[in-house]
Computed example of a mutant assay.
Amino acid sequence: MARNLAAHLEIMDDPRRDRYLRLLAVVNGWPAPESPAPVLHWAVEALRTRQL
């Protein structure tokens, strides 16, 4: 199960997603969202380490 979760989190960590959300914020006049990349990297590493 942890392996599947790690795979899904890696998919979510696509830089194109962050770019899209930043552009969407600019178009709509919203504040730019924070990138979840550091949290996703940490979670994936923690899951992978736990599997060892």
Score class of each variant (00 low, 15 high):
N28G: 06
D18E: 13
R19T: 10
M1A: 12
P38T: 02
N4A: 12
L5E: 13
M1Y: 07
L40D: 03
W42K: 14
A46K: 11
H8K: 08
L9I: 04
V44G: 03
L52Q: 09
P31A: 03
A37R: 05
P36T: 02
P36A: 04
D14A: 13
T49H: 15
P36S: 07
A37D: 03
A25T: 08
L24Q: 15
Y20W: 10
L24C: 06
H8L: 07
Y20I: 10
P15K: 11
E45V: 05
R16F: 06
R16T: 12
L21I: 02
D18Q: 06
D18R: 00
W30D: 13
A7E: 03
L47H: 03
V27C: 09
Q51P: 05
R17G: 00
L40Y: 06
A25I: 01
E10I: 06
L5H: 05
E45I: 00
A2K: 09
V27E: 14
E34I: 12
S35G: 04
T49S: 14
A6Y: 03
V27D: 11
P38W: 03
P31C: 03
A6M: 00
L21M: 08
W42G: 01
V44K: 07
P33E: 01
D13L: 02
L21A: 08
A32S: 11
R16G: 13
R17M: 10
R48D: 15
L52H: 13
A43R: 05
E45C: 12
V39C: 09
G29M: 08
R19I: 06
L9D: 06
W30V: 01
S35A: 07
E10N: 07
R22N: 07
E10D: 12
E34T: 12
W42A: 11
V27K: 09
A2V: 10
A46Y: 11
L40K: 00
M1I: 05
R22S: 07
L24F: 08
L9Q: 05
P15V: 01
R17H: 01
M12R: 11
L47G: 01
Y20A: 05
H41P: 00
D14N: 15
V44I: 15
V44F: 06
W30L: 09
V26M: 08
W30Y: 15
A46H: 14
L47C: 09
M1G: 11
R22T: 13
L9E: 02
S35Q: 04
P36Y: 02
A37C: 03
E10S: 12
G29W: 03
M12T: 04
L21T: 01
S35Y: 04
S35N: 15
V39T: 15
L40M: 09
A32I: 15
W42E: 08
H41D: 14
W42S: 09
L9A: 04
V27M: 14
L24N: 11
R16H: 09
L40T: 00
P15W: 11
D18Y: 09
A32K: 14
A43W: 06
R48H: 10
D14P: 00
N4I: 05
A6R: 05
H41A: 08
T49G: 10
R22L: 10
N28R: 12
V39L: 13
D13V: 02
R16C: 04
A2E: 15
V44P: 02
R16Q: 15
H8T: 02
D14W: 04
A43D: 05
R50T: 09
A25K: 12
T49L: 13
P38N: 04
V39K: 12
A37L: 00
A25H: 13
L52F: 07
H41F: 01
